[in-house]
Amino acid sequence: MDSLSNRKKVIEHKKMNFWERMYLPAIFQGLGITMSHFFRKKATIFYPEVEREFSENFRGLHSLKRDENGAERCTACGLCALSCPAEAITMTAAEREKGEENLYREEKYAAVYEINMLRCIFCGFCEEACPKEAIYLDGNIAKADYSRDTFIYGKDKLLEPIVK
């Protein structure tokens, strides 16, 4: 069969000559390579003190957004939960009462909104599915913890704080 990419390499199984069979030159070559790495600049980032910069389109922890008046944008339509391939999102919808107009933008809102961060694969489908621009994956990395139930993030952790 012809090669499509033209990058195929045919390995030669030729007999090694005496110099190659001694292996010592190859060993010294290897020692030279490791030695050159010894003095090379180290790639380490000293994490707690220095943090690595994320790229522009990095997808981190979710945050539920508010509009310009500080009201929650989410209307509990459930499209994010539907689009989620890992089924990490659940929510309970509730109707807006009188006098809560400054809290919730639409007539329906999410009373409970939970994301299981152990299931989430940070694909960003929820962000794309949302018609109200209510959820964005613009946070940091999920914090490590000792028990699993702390990884179910509710509204207390997800909701953007009110900016005055």
Binding site: H37, R40, T44
Partner: peptide, 10 residues
């Protein structure tokens, strides 16, 4: 330490 240096770590 040296293992780190040989592997570009600290």
């Amino acid at each position: 330490k040296f293992a780190g240096f040989f592997q570009d770590r600290v």
